[in-house]
Design a protein around this nucleic acid. Sequence first.
DNA 1: ATAATTTATCGTAATATTGCGATAAACAAA
DNA 2: TTTGTTTATCGCAATATTACGATAAATTAT
Lengths: 110, 110
Amino acid sequence: MGLAKTEMFTDKQNQIAVFAKVFGHPARVAILQHLFKTDSCFCGNLVDEIGLAQPTISQHLKELKYLGLIKGNVEGTSVCYCIDKENWTAMKEVMSDFLDQDLPADDDCC
Amino acid sequence: MGLAKTEMFTDKQNQIAVFAKVFGHPARVAILQHLFKTDSCFCGNLVDEIGLAQPTISQHLKELKYLGLIKGNVEGTSVCYCIDKENWTAMKEVMSDFLDQDLPADDDCC
DNA sequence: ATAATTTATCGTAATATTGCGATAAACAAA
DNA sequence: TTTGTTTATCGCAATATTACGATAAATTAT
């Protein structure tokens, strides 16, 4: 069906999945890493840096922006993107809760 | 196209994306959380706990196992699953490198 | 006003994911 | 051996994602 039955999961579980999903494509990982490395940069630079077509990069940027992980600032004809620090920190909190769960003691079944 | 052009990204970027992708579905998040909570449990319990059909759960377990995040142990007719601690820790390392990047100073563009 | 530059959106083809019924496989119990 | 129990696999339908050419929109420069 290709459709996640989100209504049967907790808000937290869905939230983790939504964040994880956006990191589930190497282009978006590369975009974010580049924004971290350069502090901020224009859409066009990302098109050059990553080897995908401009509409494709624009689409990935849109998803990152929709989740609030990046912000875009219009400057003339170009748009400058950067990490949304506040939301990135909030996202990390959610993901850490999930990833840093206590590992069970050594008496498990496997 | 629905096909990520993995060859244009670094191994690290692809690795992050592959891990993130498996967390990109709430059912798999729920499965992992349940395994953490119960230390280990049978496939059937997961079918009861999460409200999806048995083949669907089996498929999600297969993906988690393929990435090495869980292990399965046959016990009679049932299979006992648990977190693979070593691989989970290795995965956390990879994800932390990405998530815990230094936030740029407050002089960004946006 | 016209042309150039940059980014966003639309439309669409190719591929991937999700969910589950049907069924097979593996084992235990009677 | 037959029956029940549990999990895995197959096959398929429905939906989602990815990529990009074409084009629109917005702005600047001439």
